[in-house]
């Protein structure tokens, strides 16, 4: 709720203001503070155009015959025909399976930045600490296109370093980037390479706020480093962990779509076609706008539901929540 301004508070303190008084008071307030609203207005309009208009556009998921030219579709509700078509299509099972596999695989690696932060925090030399930090979050600034092309090189069966090592050890060269079984792993590992250091920053910040007298007390009581991490540091930063985890859950099915798209080729698409890339393919490339909107909407709704559920759970067990 917006806080009352001081003069409004004074009026409310004396007697209940009538509707006319309220309007009068609001007008006076706006005359005085209209500039603040003028400051926000451009951003509001921008978000209306580029964020809310697309949300309004979701209605084409429930109708037939959308035409890009007119921007209209048939007025009547099509009884979930697009959704039913997706459920019955041959793509449904593989696309959902790939999405779930990659999502859960990524989620399983979520604690790694936390572990990295704990490790960096334990390093004794300040210089070493700073160097590790600086180096590990540099890849975050490299574009997805470049990361994927580095992967093509590095993992190439012809010139790749990884395969040279495999062959040196007497193994067979593997064409990683064309292998369906390697697809999800390569995606998840490259995401870690790119973002683990960056995601560790926030944990490191939380760790730097741990009360050092607690650490010393535990140390005096004979706790070793692992025990201090487990019984002092982790409980201390738990609220941060919970909040970040909820936010991560809200993005559960949002897979680094650009990277998957760039990694896809005819050979590995069987494990790398996920809901978002399928939406792109069927919607933009095959111009089935209404159908693809329905598929995309499923993902948004599931994500949103998971976020709400996770937030409720966190509020119940941890007394922390996003809202």
């Amino acid at each position: 709720m917006p806080r009352q301004t001081d003069d409004a508070g004074a009026v409310a303190g004396l007697h209940r203001p009538s509707a006319a008084e309220k309007i009068h008071e609001t007008v006076r307030y706006l005359l005085r503070s209209w500039e603040l609203y003028a400051f926000v207005l451009p951003a509001i309009i921008h978000v209306l155009l580029f964020r809310y208009l697309p949300i309004y556009g979701l209605r084409i998921a429930f109708t037939d015959g959308f035409s890009l030219r007119s921007g209209r579709s048939a007025p009547e509700w099509n009884e979930f025909a697009h959704f039913i078509r997706f459920f019955n299509s041959a793509y449904f099972i593989p696309v959902i399976r790939n999405t779930i596999v990659i999502s859960l695989y990524s989620l399983a690696t979520w604690p790694i930045p936390l572990a990295l932060a704990l490790m960096i925090n334990e390093a004794r030399s300040r210089f070493f600490k700073k160097s590790v930090q600086m180096v590990t979050y540099a890849p975050h600034f490299i574009s997805t296109v470049v990361v994927v092309s580095i992967m093509y090189f590095f993992l190439s069966p012809r010139i790749g370093v990884v395969n040279s090592v495999i062959q040196l050890l007497g193994g067979e060269a593997i064409f990683f980037m064309a292998s369906p079984s390697w697809g999800p792993s390569l995606f998840v590992l490259s995401e870690l390479w790119q973002n683990a250091g960056f995601n560790a920053i926030i944990f490191l910040a939380a760790l730097s706020a741990v009360d050092s007298s607690l650490r010393e007390a535990a140390f005096c009581d004979g706790a070793n480093k692992l025990q201090i991490i487990w019984h002092v540091e982790i409980p201390w930063i738990m609220p941060t962990i919970v909040i970040l985890f909820i936010m991560r859950l809200g993005q559960l099915l949002t897979i680094g779509f650009e990277k998957v798209l760039l990694m896809q080729n005819d050979l590995n698409i069987s494990t790398l076609e996920v809901v978002a890339t399928y939406t792109y393919r069927s919607g933009i490339l095959q111009s089935q706008y209404d159908y693809a909107t329905a598929v995309g909407l499923l993902e948004t709704v599931v994500n949103f539901a998971i976020l709400v559920a996770a937030n409720r759970l966190a509020r119940r067990i941890g007394q922390t929540s996003l809202w």
Binding site: G57, G296, E299
Partner: peptide, 8 residues
């Protein structure tokens, strides 16, 4: 709204 409505 997702990719497609945004695109439209």
């Amino acid at each position: 709204g997702g990719i497609i409505p945004f695109y439209v």
